[in-house]
Write a protein that binds this DNA or RNA. Structure first.
Lengths: 200, 200
DNA sequence: AGGTGTGAAAATTTTCACAGCA
DNA sequence: TGCTGTGAAAATTTTCACACCT
C-alpha cells in the first residue's frame, strides 16, 4: 500500500488536477509543488510511487496523470455513501455538492430524531437511526460519514462496519475504534483548532 | 517547536483528557494509547516532549497533565475566532458549541450575502464580507475558520492575515498560501474522502 | 510490582543531486 | 534544454528495551 503521507498528498493532487484540467494540458512538478505548498521533488517522489512512467519534458499530461491517480487511489467508480447524524453539520455534509462530483454518491441520511428528518428539504432519502443496520446493508453502502454526538459515535461505527461499510470519515470528536481492514479518518474540528493554534 | 505529529497527537490527547477528567484522577500511557489507537510508548514519548516529569506509578495525574498540555499547546487563554462564509457548513461551524468550551470564542461571522446573514438565528454578530478587514482588526480576531467557496478562499485568507489573524482553519478545498509564521490547517472534506477510500 | 522516562535501534520520510530521456 | 525518475544521504519518526522511581 502507498505510504500514508504520500496517499494523503496524492489525494490532494488529484483535486488540484480536477481544477486545472480545463485550463492546462500539461503540468510540471514545480507548478504542482507551488500550488500544494511543497517541493518539486516531493511531488515527483509521490508520483513516482504510482509506477507510471516516461513523461516528456513538458511535465505531466494532466489527463493521464489524473486517470493514473484515480486508478491507484481507487477512484475509478462512484462510492455509495451515507451520512449518519443530521444536525447542522450532518445536514451541511448531506448537501455538500462537491461530494457528488468527486464520485461519492450520498444515498442515505440517518438521524435519531424523526421530526428533524421530516423537515429536511433534501432529495436524499433520510431514515431513522434505528433502520441504520438494514438500510446500510440493503443499499450496499460502502462509505459512511459520521456526524453524531461523541457519545453515540462508537456504536454507530460498529453498526456500520457490521453491515459492510469499509471506509469511515468521522466528524465527531470521539476516538473511534474499527477492526483492521476498515479505513478510518478522523476530522475533529476542535482538535484541529487546538493543533493550529499550537503551531503559531 | 514540537514535532508536527507529536503536536497533532497531543491536541487529541488534550481532548481525551477533558472527557475523562470527571471520571478518573489518574490515567496511564497504556489507557491513553488504547483510546487513541496508538501504543503506550508513543504516548510516553509525546508526553516526554513536554519536559514535565516525575509521575508516580499510578500513571499521569489527569489535571496536571491537562494543564501542562494546555501550557505547551498555548491553550491557557481563549482565542478570538471568526467564521468566514455562512453557507450551511459555515453556519454549522458558527453554532458548534464545542468550540466555546474548548476556548475558541467565536466573535464574528461574515458572508457576502446580506439576506442570508439577516435570516440567521444566532447570537453571534454577523457582518457583510466587505467589512471583513476592519472588523477583524477592530475585534482583534486571532483565529479564523474559512468556509467560503474555493474561488474566494485565497483572497479571504490574505485579508485575514493582513489584519492580524495568526491561525487559519481552512474548510475550502482551495490550497491556500500564507506567509511564514501563520499557522494553517486544511480540512478538505473531499480530499479526506478520497484518502480514506484509498486506504481500503 | 507497576508504572514512567529515555537512549539506542529500526523504520520511514524527506531532501538532494544528477543521470537520462524527449 | 528542461523536465522527470531515482539512488543515496540526511532527517525525522517510530519502536523497543530497560533503567529508574514510588
Amino acid at each position: 500500500m502507498l505510504p500514508k503521507n504520500t496517499a494523503e498528498r496524492l489525494s490532494k493532487i488529484y483535486g488540484v488536477l480536477q481544477t486545472i484540467s480545463k485550463d492546462a494540458e500539461y503540468v510540471t512538478s514545480k507548478e504542482l509543488a507551488a500550488v500544494m505548498g511543497t517541493t518539486d521533488f516531493t511531488i515527483r517522489k509521490d508520483i513516482g510511487a504510482l509506477n507510471i512512467m516516461n513523461f516528456g519534458r513538458k511535465g505531466y499530461h494532466v489527463e493521464e496523470l489524473s486517470s493514473a491517480l484515480g486508478r491507484v487511489l481507487q477512484l475509478t467508480r462512484p462510492y455509495r455513501t451515507c451520512v449518519v447524524g443530521l444536525g447542522k453539520l450532518g445536514t451541511a455534509v448531506l448537501d455538500y455538492e462537491a461530494f457528488k462530483d468527486a464520485g461519492f454518491d450520498i444515498v442515505a441520511g440517518f438521524d435519531i430524531n424523526l421530526n428533524k428528518v421530516e423537515r429536511l428539504h433534501t432529495e436524499i432519502a433520510v431514515y431513522h437511526s434505528s433502520d441504520l443496520d438494514h438500510i446500510v446493508k440493503s443499499k450496499s453502502v460502502e462509505v459512511a460519514i459520521i456526524a453524531v454526538p461523541q457519545a453515540s459515535a462508537q456504536e454507530v461505527a460498529t453498526t456500520l462496519v457490521a453491515n459492510g461499510v469499509k471506509a469511515i470519515l468521522n466528524f465527531s470528536p470521539a476516538q473511534i475504534k474499527v477492526p483492521k481492514g476498515i479505513a478510518l479518518y478522523n476530522m475533529d474540528f476542535t482538535a484541529a483548532l487546538r493543533f493550529v493554534v499550537s503551531q503559531i
